[in-house]
Design a protein around this nucleic acid. Structure first.
Lengths: 152, 152
DNA sequence: CGTAAATATATTGATATCAACTCTTTTGGC
DNA sequence: GCCAAAAGAGTTGATATCAATATATTTACG
């Protein structure tokens, strides 16, 4: 006889221990909280920091380009831009070459905030790498990044 | 003179390429979409699947325990339980030993849904691992999981 | 040229996420 | 036993996420 409560061919325990989706969500939540806290004095979240970064270039990107870079749904990007635009950190302009497309442009305030956030990021990321090394001896951070890219 | 637009000591490009927070968020979004799609015929999201899994045990867990397992804020868990409870997949009971605490208990419907979802998970995860191997030759999935645990 | 298909984005509705705050219950010091 | 501190959970408000759907613009075909 099999056990009464867990007779599935794929036990709960195996799924919990194995699932890359769960492991990635767990890490994503933990890292978001950590960077959110670090950026809080600047009135910025971790996601907003990544988003501003993706827009910080000479040649403005379109919504679709930024959404692809962040592996984010286009409609999520539309929503995420609203608070940034409201705070005057960036603006959305119609692309003159293709009037369906939008160019996402950082304002001076947005660039200034990014400059202020950069050392916070550097400090926080360095601490994260130190702790990761302590938690997992011989952790290979570049390899971890490559693995994350492979599953994204 | 330094360049006019990017004179920060930490260039945007370096942050974009390096940031583990961004890489993890990207992967988390992509995997959530993928598993959400696979579970859709069952009316389940990837997060709900992980949550039901965390509650599937003989000895019920409390909210705090489940939140810790998922690296999730306690208040997020409260919110996430609402649709599951409404759909009759689980119920929340007061712990008789400690009336502050809640025991999270899967219903028969919840267990049945989990059993139906298990093969979907198995299939989807196997496909993910295949594609990850194709994207990154020599990818070490157990090592990737360990790295995710180290940063969570 | 004109229209159907494709492309780029926006809106709506549901769930997810967390900080700040509140409420209830338990624990510890006395 | 009493009361302050601690612990567990719920509520509110803001942002994040995506599917389904809608709108505007461009492209392609005839």
């Amino acid at each position: 006889m099999s056990k009464s409560s867990n007779d599935s061919s794929v036990p709960t325990r195996l799924i919990h221990d194995t699932c890359l989706c769960l492991h990635t969500q767990r890490a994503a939540r933990a890292l978001a909280r950590r960077f959110d806290e670090a950026f809080r004095p600047l009135g910025l979240t971790s996601g907003q920091f990544s988003l501003l970064n993706a827009m910080n270039r000479e040649t403005p990107r379109s919504m679709g380009e930024v959404a692809a870079i962040l592996a984010m749904d286009r409609t999520t990007l539309t929503a995420n831009l609203k608070p940034l635009e409201r705070q005057g950190l960036m603006k959305i302009t119609v692309d003159a070459q293709d009037r369906r497309s939008r160019k996402l442009i950082l304002t001076a305030a947005g660039k200034k905030l990014l400059r202020a956030a950069a050392p916070v990021w550097k400090r926080t990321h360095a601490a994260l790498e130190r702790e990761a090394a302590a938690a997992m001896s011989g952790i290979d951070i570049p390899n971890l990044r490559a693995g994350l890219r492979a599953i994204a």
